[in-house]
Design a protein around this nucleic acid. Structure first.
Lengths: 200, 200
DNA sequence: AAATGTACAAAAAATGATTATTGTTCATTG
DNA sequence: CAATGAACAATAATCATTTTTTGTACATTT
């Protein structure tokens, strides 16, 4: 079993420089060639390390690829979270998440992989596992909004979190579902309606 | 240009028996072999017609495949719509759409294609075009709910339709987004909360 | 007229031989 | 002891070749 084993409960050690060197090289290769066309020998060459070391830290190529995307997602999530804490309302927070979520998906490794291997990206986006980490960021924001009286205390935090995640994922994935929601202003007005008032 | 040409405005003529014979054969082949492994010669053999006739009605293989899925979606949609008109509230209607939507996607051609060519199904599900036809069914139900006082008249019909579609698509695609929403009862309670009351 | 069936070149897929990569092991290095 | 690099069988990718399929045209049949 590899050292940097990662599962849903035990996340990777991003403080280990070796792990980061491997992931840096792997991300660079995936970014340039796509997943299918990156050989671990190439990753080793780019990272100036041995292929044996890669296998010491990751079970196999699939685990390495997953590690690359998890770290990248973690980075985006932390960046977004840092912006969220400065925003006053839950609606502002979800709006920001949607706008920056779209930006993140249109950049870097996600965007380049969407060009070379769109089916792979599509499969990732349809795995609910992909959103697990994001889900865990919302409950504190929901509770703050409840304490501030923005949303009702009667609503279960898990229900509110699920609802917010569904809205955010849907709006990032589909800019248009009948309505075209492209501008920050339009997204904010829409979210204000459906989150704070619903349709009732 | 083929006879049964189909675009977003001009839908296919499902009353033409030739069109249906071709689509029946094509659906049967796709169901059994997947898209990649169905040759139009095989479709012709199964449908007991000539390959020339297929090209008379469909521009190319891609158009035929699209035709198969559009007809199947149209069938499911009409079936669902027939059930919806009997339901009293908008919440009941969305609940039913989610439950039957999940059933439809777990059956027949969608389910079999998801086994043999999951990436193709994933790509379909992420095209917002895939949901266009479904979107057009909702505005009358939204207006009825407004007239009945279930939801506010102040909310724009397009906004409400978009919101309902996003909820339905999300719930069909992801049974679990933090909350596990599997039972009809659970789905209904959730939708009742977020549609009629929101989080406010 | 509509459907068929044949012919045909271009494109795509199956095939099989060849080469590269993966995943494992272990002796060697720093 | 972590990292390296080499050896190795098993697996997967690549490539040139053969075969099938596609898409078009048109003469023939119903």
């Amino acid at each position: 079993m590899a050292v940097a084993r990662q599962d849903q409960f035990n996340s990777m050690d991003y403080s280990d420089p070796m792990v980061n060197r491997i992931l840096d090289a792997a991300e660079q290769c995936i970014h340039r060639f796509g997943i299918r066309r990156t050989a671990l020998g190439e990753v080793a060459r780019v990272g100036k390390l041995s292929r044996g070391s890669i296998y010491r830290y990751f079970d196999d190529k699939a685990a390495l690829v997953q590690g690359v995307f998890w770290r990248r997602q973690e980075f985006y999530l932390n960046q977004t979270e840092a912006a969220l804490v400065k925003l006053p309302t839950l609606v502002d927070k979800v709006t920001h998440s949607v706008v920056s979520g779209r930006k993140d998906m249109a950049q870097g490794i996600f965007a380049s992989l969407a060009e070379t291997e769109p089916e792979t990206v599509a499969m990732m986006f349809l795995e609910s596992k992909f959103y697990q980490r994001s889900v865990s960021f919302w409950p504190p924001h929901v509770r703050l909004a409840q304490e501030a009286g923005e949303i009702s205390e009667a609503v279960d935090v898990a229900v509110a979190t699920d609802f917010i995640m569904r809205l955010a994922v849907s709006l990032v994935t589909f800019p248009d579902m009948g309505l075209s929601l492209k501008s920050r202003k339009g997204i904010r007005a829409y979210l204000d309606q459906v989150i704070t008032r619903g349709l009732g």
